[in-house]
Amino acid sequence: MSTIASLRIGEMGYISEESLDVIPLKLLEMGCLPGAEVRLVQIAPLKDPLYICVNGSHLAIRKETAAQIKILKVNL
């Protein structure tokens, strides 16, 4: 299954329901909810952190966190 970390720049996905337990509380509170649409905006030059847009929030998170959050990829 794909995760946020497997997205390419500009790609989108929906956070899967089963990720609820692995998403840190703080990230949930910032809008990174199961079911929410997430888009990878930019990857830092050294491949980490990732710059994502989820639920209207623009956030930078580390790859290790992103790799735990499963998503359903949207094929454009």
Binding site: P24, K26, L27, M30, V41, P49, Y51, S57, H58, L59, A60, I61, R62, T65
Partner: peptide
């Protein structure tokens, strides 16, 4: 604790 930064 982990890392998250808002990109305003």
């Amino acid at each position: 604790s982990f890392f998250v930064v808002e990109m305003p």
